[in-house]
């Protein structure tokens, strides 16, 4: 059970949050210009790596804000949290 440092509320129990999958996948601005393959790449393809991963999280039972998290999926260590729109921290 993680202890997550919400960038708006501070440390809260994991049960207050929900995970929204891989971060930094931007919705294409002009979807209609894309080929089926390019659209499928956006729609379906996710990394799911063992190791350091960038994820979207939502403080669903709190401030309801979305933010990003850098988490090592192999040991669940959270390396950083940062607000939407902020640049991901460099390794």
């Amino acid at each position: 059970m993680f202890l997550i440092n919400c960038p708006y509320c501070g440390e809260r129990d994991q049960s207050e949050f929900s995970c929204g999958g891989e971060a930094h996948i931007v919705r294409p601005k002009q979807p209609t210009e894309l080929s089926d393959d390019q659209w499928a790449e956006y729609l379906f393809m996710r990394k799911n790596i063992k190791g350091v991963q960038f994820e979207r999280w939502n403080h669903a039972h709190g401030c309801r804000k979305w933010f990003n998290m850098v988490r090592d999926t192999s040991n669940d260590k959270i390396h950083a949290v940062y607000k939407m729109g902020e640049k991901p921290p460099v390794e």
Binding site: V26, R27, N58, K65, W66, M84, G85
Partner: peptide
């Protein structure tokens, strides 16, 4: 509601 909030906060701020 969650879905709409998600788009508002992340795609169309």
């Amino acid at each position: 509601l969650s879905k709409l909030e998600d788009y508002l906060q992340t795609e169309w701020p």
